[in-house]
Design a protein around this nucleic acid. Structure first.
Length: 284
DNA sequence: CTTACGGCCTGGGTGC
DNA sequence: TGCACCCAGGCCGTAA
């Protein structure tokens, strides 16, 4: 499940491998996750990769056409749950579930694989004006503390839902929200507006520490995630709550629990992360 | 407007 | 050996 650290790891791998290369041709397998498959085949050949960027959990390949009159554009990629992008020799064995092949002019190939095809690929003419991207919230590693406090502390939704909402903060998924909330000692069901300033500051620090450390370790390899060089991430070794239901809290020794919050499996320590008072429902 | 929730997409892993 | 079921992220429709 690629979240910000995994996508950043992929982006760094591609950034070291792709800029300057030309795309010769496009070959496609299953295409139901591609917005306009024929546009990919039509527009990519001849293009040069200018840059690779990450926006939240999105990857962007900025391309320039060889045609002098053509305008640059970007390929927007979301890895979904099981997507990955690698660069290999064109004659390397093809992994199962590989659905996009971009042949480069130097004998290499960019490949997109995605077991469940929850990922998405789309061409965007102008990434700075694309609604998908402009509607995203702040990058937690770029936001100031004040921005972060303002965005999360002013909303009445559960803090878990707010952290997962890409329009509030971009890049967090289930693993890193649970890990951050544990480190900040905040229960996932707490409402944004109920958080004290000090708690929000702890959360800001926890989010940044967790994400930075995870990027350093090239993400978490929970199932089969690999970086561009095929290496596993190592951050799963530092998970404190994620998928540790029934085990002991590293901080206080209590038994960790799992509950559905914001429709997602949420892992937390019932002692370190105090639940909010039961919410009352009024009917009259 | 804001929040909550169920359903949909897909298929590997799990448990019976 | 088979198979029903669970679950994941994003998105959408609906309801309060």
């Amino acid at each position: 499940m690629p979240e910000l650290p995994e996508v950043e790891t992929v982006a760094r791998g591609l950034r070291a491998a792709l800029p300057g290369s030309h795309i010769l041709s496009v070959r496609l397998g299953k295409t139901d996750f591609i917005d306009d498959p024929s546009a990919l085949k039509r527009k990519l050949p001849g293009c040069r990769v200018m840059a690779v960027r990450r926006h939240g959990k999105f990857l962007l390949l900025d391309l320039d056409p060889s045609d002098q009159n053509g305008r640059g554009f970007s390929v927007l990629i979301h890895l979904g749950m099981t997507g990955n992008v690698v660069v290999t020799a064109a004659d390397a064995p093809v992994a199962p579930h590989t659905h996009v092949f971009l042949a480069l002019d130097d004998g290499r190939e960019v490949r997109y694989m995605d077991v469940r095809r929850f990922g998405r690929i789309r061409i965007v003419p102008d990434s700075s004006r694309d609604a998908t991207l402009t509607h995203l919230g702040v990058d937690p590693l770029e936001a100031t503390e004040e921005e972060f406090l303002q965005r999360l502390g002013s909303r009445r939704a559960r803090i878990k839902a707010l952290l997962l909402d890409q329009r509030v903060v971009r890049g967090m998924g289930n693993i890193y929200t649970d890990e951050s909330l544990w480190r900040a000692r905040i229960h996932p069901k707490r409402l944004g507006t109920s958080l004290q300033r000090e708690e929000l500051r702890r959360l800001f620090r926890a989010v940044r520490d967790v994400l930075r450390q995870a990027i350093q370790l090239r993400g978490s390899s929970v199932s089969d995630y690999r970086d561009a060089e095929g290496r596993r991430g190592e951050f799963q070794r530092l998970h404190r709550v994620y998928q540790r239901e029934g085990k002991k809290c590293f901080r206080c020794g209590a038994t960790l629990r799992r509950a559905i919050v914001a429709g997602r499996s949420s892992h937390y320590c019932p002692r370190c992360q105090r639940p909010p008072r039961v919410r009352r429902r009024f009917s009259a």
